[in-house]
């Protein structure tokens, strides 16, 4: 039966119609989408490799060439094309950010759902873990962890380490959010009804809890993505990235190290900085709008709800 696809399509269409009207949401979507497209089609958008040194006619490396001399964004201290680095860097930044964001979201949702749904001891245990993580300052801890892993020379790519550390530390707020939502949903009568017809925990979580919090998860994922990208940039800026696969943060790190600022080479440090702002702003806008739009609609009952009438009287009388 293909019937089940129809309501979904209807949902999607309704959603798109509402979304199209929202200017901020569209802007956010545009910002994120452009970044993704640049990253995806990077090889098509530049003739160079990110590590390739641009040489002038005499075969000398073209160092610190401003945009007027070379390419759209000039070259860096080693004569590499900044535009090329920027769009290849987008691949690294976005991949690490997205992977880390998804890990965080997954762990956070899992903890939140289990804690909220089962309550009692499970809740206590999971929430204590969350609390502990919550009180330790994130950035210093991540620094220490990444540095330690690197010291151990385990032959793991630094990017994987970064992803894992961000993903496994940055889920606490999500877990709390999801948990509180699950706590209210679990009290609702349709969950009782599901229990009363004999449904098991897994069935209830899958069919009744998840669909209600999915919008929240989606919106929150987008928000967490922006934070993951920011953190990745921060850590990479501090030199914890992979120098052979520069992300935007790594670019900034290079620019800082090679005194791009004192040299006035703005085209070296501004583009990665703006790119970070571009993507995280896009995520935040998109996330906020999604959260607002996907929030489950409150439905009242006609014999009970007087709220609207009260509001009216409050507004009109005196």
């Amino acid at each position: 039966m293909n019937e089940s696809s129809t309501p979904f399509k209807r949902h999607l269409r309704d959603f798109w119609i509402a979304f199209r009207r929202n200017k901020l949401g569209l802007l956010g979507g545009f910002l994120v989408l452009t970044a993704i497209i640049l990253a995806l089609f990077a090889p098509l958008l530049t003739p160079y490799q990110p590590t390739e040194v641009i040489r002038d006619e005499k075969g000398r490396g073209l160092t610190f060439a401003p945009p007027s001399v070379h390419g759209p964004l000039g070259t860096d201290d080693a004569g590499r094309d900044v535009w090329t680095q920027l769009i290849y860097g987008a691949r690294i930044s976005l991949t690490v950010g997205f992977m880390a964001g998804f890990i965080a979201m997954f762990v956070g949702s899992l903890f939140g759902i289990l804690a909220g749904y089962f309550g009692g001891r499970v809740d206590n245990l999971l929430m204590r873990i969350t609390d502990v993580l919550l009180v330790i300052p994130d950035l210093p801890l991540m620094l220490v962890l990444v540095a330690t892993v690197r010291q151990m020379e385990l032959n793991i790519s630094p990017l994987v380490v970064l992803t894992a550390v961000i993903g496994l530390l940055y889920w606490t707020s999500t877990a709390r959010l999801i948990r509180s939502q699950v706590l209210t949903i679990k009290e609702r009568q349709f969950v009782d009804r599901a229990r009363a017809i004999g449904a098991g925990h897994m069935h209830i979580i899958r069919k009744h809890i998840l669909p209600q919090i999915m919008p929240l998860i989606v919106a929150n994922t987008v928000l967490v993505l922006s934070i993951a990208i920011l953190i990745e940039s921060g850590l990479a800026f501090l030199g914890l990235g992979d120098p052979t696969k520069p992300s935007w943060g790594t670019m900034l790190n290079f620019a800082f190290d090679r005194s791009a600022i004192t040299n006035g080479a703005w085209w070296f440090y501004l583009p990665p900085g703006l790119a970070i702002v571009w993507v995280s702003l896009g995520c935040v806008l998109l996330g906020n709008v999604l959260e607002e739009m996907l929030n489950p609609r409150l439905t009242g009952h006609h014999l009970e709800d007087g709220q609207s009438m009260i509001a009216v009287s409050g507004k009109r009388s005196e």
Binding site: E304, D305, M309, I310, S313, S317
Partner: peptide, 19 residues
């Protein structure tokens, strides 16, 4: 009209007791 409301005629809104 405001002078009439409450002094001449008053209303108990639907559901107000829950609000």
């Amino acid at each position: 009209m405001r002078a009439h409301r409450w002094k001449d005629m008053a209303i108990i809104f639907q559901g107000a007791m829950n609000a």
